[in-house]
Simulated scan of single mutants.
Amino acid sequence: MNDKKTQIVQAAIKLFGERDYHTTSVQDIVSLAGVSKGAFYLHFHSKEELLVHIFNHYMESYRSYLEEILQDPSLSARERLFKSIEYQCEAFIKDKDFIAMQLKGITFLNKALQDLMIDHSNQNVIWFDQRIIELYGSEIRPHSFDCANLFNGMIKEFYFCHIVFGHPIEGGQLAEYLMNRLDDVIYGILSKPTVPILSKAVILSDRSSETTRESLIERALTTKGWIESHVEAPMVMCTMLQSLDVIVQEANKEEPNDIIIKGMVNYLISLAEGDSDIIAVFNKSFGCARIC
């Protein structure tokens, strides 16, 4: 992000955390950021798009780190899981205002943001599930999803205590404590025959089978944030962002034209020039380009 965009994002996080999303105006944000309204609208169409960008930026940073440690052959299964918790703890503890935003229910302002956060939470649990099987072996597989959710819940509760009650927490210490508690959970389950509670198939069922006007717009805005972070060629990035703007404009119409939307999605894929990572993002965001 350029300097002005970074200033806008940081000011918004602070104000949304300290005050409230609804009572914070664009003027409040630009005043704290020390930029003009023109600079704001150069980067974001609305306060809602800014909010989506903030969440998407944090989630992408976390996912990138997980991928990085997953590709490190020098790390053991336990070290990978430990480092993921340590990173998450330290990042979230450092950015209290961001967590405060979530505690105030900002993520549930609309269905699109709710879907974004649920998708992130699901991906996080899936990652824990995979690491638990990798660390403890196939014997825990029938219970790994229960364990992953228990583990995820423990982590969130410590964040809650830190943010709400101001309880001091150190990332490495908490990560080590949680890893030991995970051992207790895993070996406790293995030593006492029990029936799994949660069904991965039910909880992680495809939530994107229908595309509504709101979800399509949200996917486009989320994809814009991803493009800005991952597409290096300036002209390609600019053209992709313009194409996404067309999708948003069409979806906002009283009677959106599915052909135009589908055409723009195909154009976006062509701009990827065979880059499988970019194409995968477009397919995931616009797999169903028809508004149901």
Rank of each mutant, 00 (worst) to 15 (best):
M1Y: 03
D3E: 15
V9N: 04
A12H: 05
G17P: 02
G17H: 00
H22M: 12
S25H: 00
V30I: 07
L32F: 03
L32W: 00
G38D: 04
L42E: 11
H45G: 14
E49K: 08
I54K: 07
S61E: 15
Y87G: 03
F98L: 08
M101F: 08
L109S: 11
K111H: 14
M117P: 03
I118E: 15
S121D: 14
N122P: 06
Y136F: 10
S138K: 15
H143W: 02
G153R: 03
K156V: 06
K156A: 12
E157K: 03
E157M: 00
F160Q: 10
H162G: 05
E170N: 11
L178W: 04
R181F: 04
D184C: 08
Y187S: 07
S191L: 05
E210P: 01
T212D: 08
R213H: 05
I217Q: 14
T222K: 07
T222I: 10
I227P: 05
E228N: 03
E232V: 11
C238N: 14
M240Q: 05
Q249M: 12
I260E: 13
V265H: 11
N266S: 13
F282T: 06
F282G: 13
F286T: 08
F286A: 04
C288L: 13
C292D: 15
C292E: 13
